[in-house]
Computed example of a mutant assay.
Amino acid sequence: MEILEELRPEGADEHPKAKHELLQSTVEIITGICGTVAEAKADLAGTLAEVAAAAERRGLGLMCAGTHPITDWQSQLISPKERYLQLVERMQWLARRLQIFGVHVHVGVRAPEKAIPIVNALCQYVPHFLALSASSPFWVGCDTGLASARAKVFESMPTAGLPYQLSGWDEFETYMETLISTNAIESVREVWWDIRPHPGFGTVELRICDGLPTLDEVGAVAALSQCLVEQFDTQLDRGYTLPTPPSWVLRENKWRAARYGLDADIVVDEKGTVRPVRQSILDLVEDLTPTAKRLECEQELADVERVLAVGASYQRQRAVAAASGGKLEPVVDSLLSEMRTGLPSDGPAGGWSGPVPGPADCSGGHAA
């Protein structure tokens, strides 16, 4: 609250790129409209520096991950904005426990009728994005055994999770109108699908990613997002019909990525063929490299391979916890450090997939 008030320009209601979120302990940082991933990273870095300086003056640090390893959602204060107060009143426990954090990427599309086919096609890459970004193995001081606990916490909201596979824009509008007319939602902003069209911005928004500790990782998922949307947009221009994967495959693959992260084997066809998601990500990067060159994000797309080499955040966090005898305070320190210094040059490639030894059971309470 104090930080955002300090950063608020005189005469303005709020900072243009640093915003309130549901919890008072959270600051949402956004960018303007950017032409390249590098421009978006620079935009984020500028606002992040402002927030970090204001936080430092108060003896506070910044971190970003899908969940905070040790804090309890029950101790968090809700931001005093009418939108959030109404959300908590309506959703109660489901909203109160949303001590989760994500990275959302908007990519522009060139025509409204393309949005739904692109959303449907992007869904097959939910496990790729989730495994790569997974950074929430811990919840209220215990190891959940998942790579992304955030994904499962957020799914509890009635309008969150995988999108419905709709036939086109007309069906999307009908669905939104029904939700609004029946008082299920007030606007499309309350439909928190993992991937959704955003009518106000003319974009497809990928919301599946956990919070990412470094700008390098943000850039990597942004490049992956931009290249995929551009590829699908171009294919539609050429008259192709984009794939609409079966819903059971999408649900199964999302679960596998949330549970096993980069060690997941994902289903790649209706016959039940499985393939390591790690290899699928590498192949996807290779396939998208020509598109990345045209979009001037080849370096950021290559950072996907850097993440695979040093380990996703959930793997790095577990490695720190294991080296600390199961203590999670050093994990928080490592996330603070990564926010300041960037993606580490080495890490637990191959990953730590089991629970961290040491902490007590996960039935509730705080870490020791």
Rank of each mutant, 00 (worst) to 15 (best):
P359D: 03
L162I: 10
Q74T: 14
W193C: 00
L328A: 11
G364V: 12
L295Y: 01
V304R: 03
L295I: 00
I195M: 10
D72W: 09
E155H: 12
T36A: 00
R97F: 07
V191I: 06
P69Y: 14
N120Q: 01
G358T: 03
A49F: 05
L224K: 08
S181D: 05
L85T: 15
D143G: 03
K81W: 06
L23F: 10
P290K: 06
I185P: 01
E28L: 04
D170A: 06
P246L: 08
R294T: 07
A54P: 08
Q226G: 10
A302N: 05
L308R: 02
P69Q: 13
W248N: 06
V204C: 02
D72L: 12
C123Y: 14
Y314I: 02
V332W: 06
C297G: 01
L162G: 02
S167Y: 12
L85W: 14
M176Q: 13
G211Q: 10
V304T: 07
A147G: 01
I185Y: 01
D143I: 06
L146K: 04
G161L: 09
R83G: 02
E177V: 12
R58Q: 04
C297R: 03
T289D: 03
A40E: 00
R8L: 03
R189C: 10
E28N: 00
E177C: 11
A95N: 01
P9W: 13
L132F: 05
Q165F: 15
T144N: 11
S167C: 07
Q315A: 00
V188G: 15
L228S: 01
T273Q: 00
G239Y: 01
Y260Q: 15
H366N: 15
P197L: 06
I30R: 05
M63R: 12
T214L: 09
L94F: 14
V88W: 10
H20A: 11
E6G: 03
T159S: 13
E329T: 10
G351D: 07
P127C: 04
G219A: 12
H128M: 06
E286Y: 09
V218I: 02
A321C: 06
V332E: 14
K19Q: 15
E177I: 09
P112H: 03
L343T: 10
R316L: 15
K293S: 00
A42Q: 14
W93T: 11
L48H: 14
V103P: 11
